[in-house]
């Protein structure tokens, strides 16, 4: 049986760990709220944007041939996969889940004879793919989660757009963690390019005549490319929300585990303490008895 002092030391150590995990839990909760607010702010923009796009594509008869970003390639040979991960660990299986999903996707695409190459955002994913898929890793963004602004997103989207338009990629897909609830985040794949114009259902768009300046098609030509920015930005934000949620849950679990461990260790400690007291008592009693008899 370990000495009393060792157990005591161990308890103190676990208590300190618990303090840290609890603090991290609270930090994650605060960050989660902050990013959620940002995401909601952006939703106003994104919703309005979608509304405009569907209105414009309805009135202007989108003709795919004049919008290269809408064109589907007949043969998909090269796929560009964008993987969003976190910069930091200690968030449960968050990064692992994303990476596994990406691996599955890569394996499947390769099985179909397609070539895949990657853009990875987040240090965790970057270090993994650098190890395992160095040959297909095209571009890496690190230390950016929580620091990016819309200008950054615009630049990143531009690179993806160039990759598609130059024929380097026939398709651009995006993998991110969809936020379902604080307890559940799911790796989700989404097509980015070619752009799938959202089915503008006639009911959604009011039928009132607008004045367009310049022509509706021209406006659409200008603003359609920006819908990649909108998509990318909202996914980045959502991925960040998921990360904080995952970390919150992970740290909450860790705190609880610490608590259990402390309870158990305290139990062992008290038993050991009692045992040593009993032993001492027996020694005293034994000694006294010997004296009396002697």
């Amino acid at each position: 049986m370990p000495g009393l002092r060792d157990i005591k030391r161990k308890i103190d150590a676990v208590k300190k760990t618990q303090q840290i995990t609890r603090a991290m839990n609270m930090v994650a909760a605060a960050k989660l709220r902050a990013v959620q607010t940002r995401m909601e702010g952006f939703r106003v923009y994104a919703d309005k944007y979608k509304e405009l796009i569907s209105r414009l594509s309805m009135v202007s008869n989108v003709d795919e041939s004049s919008f290269p970003l809408l064109q589907r390639r007949e043969e998909i040979r090269r796929v560009h996969l964008v993987v969003l991960t976190a910069d930091r660990g200690l968030c449960g299986a968050f990064n692992t889940n994303l990476i596994n999903r990406a691996e599955k996707y890569i394996a499947k695409a390769k099985g179909e004879g397609k070539e895949v190459f990657l853009t990875v955002l987040g240090r965790r994913g970057a270090s993994y793919f650098r190890m395992h898929h160095r040959d297909i890793l095209k571009k890496v963004y690190e230390d950016i989660v929580g620091k990016y602004d819309y200008a950054f997103v615009t630049r990143m989207a531009k690179e993806l757009e160039d990759s598609f338009l130059s024929g380097e990629a026939d398709e651009v897909a995006l993998l991110y963690a969809r936020f379902i609830s604080v307890l559940r985040q799911e790796p989700t794949l989404e097509d980015m390019l070619p752009i799938e114009p959202e089915g503008a259902s006639e009911e959604d768009v009011n039928q009132i005549e607008y004045i367009y300046e310049p022509k509706a098609q021209e406006i659409l030509r200008q603003i359609l490319p920006k819908s990649i920015n909108v998509q990318l930005y909202s996914r980045l934000l959502e991925n960040e929300v998921s990360e904080h949620a995952a970390r919150m849950t992970a740290m909450d679990n860790a705190t609880n585990n610490c608590k259990d461990m402390i309870t158990q260790l305290t139990l062992i400690y008290n038993k050991a303490r009692q045992a040593s007291i009993t032993k001492e008592l027996m020694d005293i009693v034994g000694g006294a008895e010997a004296l009396r008899q002697g």
């Binding site: 005549e209 004045i211 367009y212 300046e213």
Partner: peptide
């Protein structure tokens, strides 16, 4: 400032979409 220059909008303007 629209794509073709400045324009003004007063209350109860007709529906407009402008780059």
């Amino acid at each position: 400032t629209g794509i073709d220059g400045e324009f003004g909008v007063l209350p109860n303007h007709a529906p407009l979409l402008c780059l």
